[in-house]
Amino acid sequence: MNEEEQAAAARRVRRLIYMAAGGKIQEEDLGNGETDLRTIGLDSLGYLNLLEGLERTFGVAIDLDQEEDHSFLHTIDNIVRYIGARSAQA
């Protein structure tokens, strides 16, 4: 992804997080892209909703059993990098 595509992906991820958390996390709470989502209240149900949203929005299959390191889900920047890498593989 180029910079413009990355910025667009980040905006979509921010929106997905807001919806996944049922509004409990406001988009302004997300801060910069390096905020650890676990520290601002994204719980296990929120993560489940976020994963569903990421799969359907970006058309990627996310199998946590196949990923040894789950830190790709901890920040918006990491998620965007992961989505970019998976899109490039497809």
């Binding site: 993560y47 489940l48 994963l51 569903e52 799969e55 299959a61 996310i62 199998d63 946590l64 059993d65």
Partner: peptide, 9 residues
């Protein structure tokens, strides 16, 4: 079922 219970898997 191991892992996150996403609808696809």
């Amino acid at each position: 079922f191991k892992g996150a219970p996403l609808t696809r898997p």
